[in-house]
Simulated scan of single mutants.
Amino acid sequence: MTARQPVTTRQPVTARQPVAQEVTAWRPRVPGVAEVFHARFTGYAYPMHVHDAWTLLIVDAGAVRYDLDRHEHGTPGDTVSLLPPHVPHNGSPATADGFRKRVVYLDGALLGDHLIGAAVDSPDLRDPLLRQRVGRLHTALARPGDELEAESRLTLIGERLRDLLRPRPGTRPDTRPEAGRRPDPALARSLRELLDERVTEGLALEEAARLLYAHPAHLVRAFSGAYGIAPHQYLMSRRVGRARRLLLDGVPPGETATATGFYDQAHLTRHFKKLVGVTPGRYRSSAR
Rank of each mutant, 00 (worst) to 15 (best):
R242H: 14
T260E: 06
H218K: 11
D249V: 01
R242M: 15
A230H: 07
S224G: 11
V251A: 10
I229C: 10
L235R: 04
M236V: 11
Y213P: 12
T260K: 01
R210D: 15
Q233P: 05
A217T: 10
A222N: 06
Y227C: 15
F262I: 05
H215P: 06
H215Y: 12
Y213E: 15
P253Y: 01
L246F: 03
P231G: 12
G228M: 07
R239W: 02
P216L: 06
T258K: 11
G254A: 12
L212Q: 10
V240D: 09
V251P: 04
A226Y: 00
A222P: 00
G254P: 05
R245V: 12
R244W: 08
R244S: 14
P252V: 07
R238T: 05
H215V: 13
R242V: 07
L247A: 02
V240S: 08
G250F: 04
G241K: 04
G241F: 02
P231C: 14
S237L: 07
Q233T: 07
G228T: 00
S237Q: 11
Y213V: 14
P253G: 05
S224C: 01
G250L: 04
R242N: 12
L211Q: 15
V240P: 11
A230V: 04
V251L: 10
P216R: 03
G261R: 00
A214P: 10
Y213S: 15
Q233Y: 01
H232V: 04
R210I: 03
L247E: 00
H232D: 11
V240T: 07
G241N: 09
V251C: 10
T256S: 06
P253D: 02
Q233D: 14
R244V: 15
P253R: 00
T258N: 08
R239F: 04
L211K: 13
G250I: 01
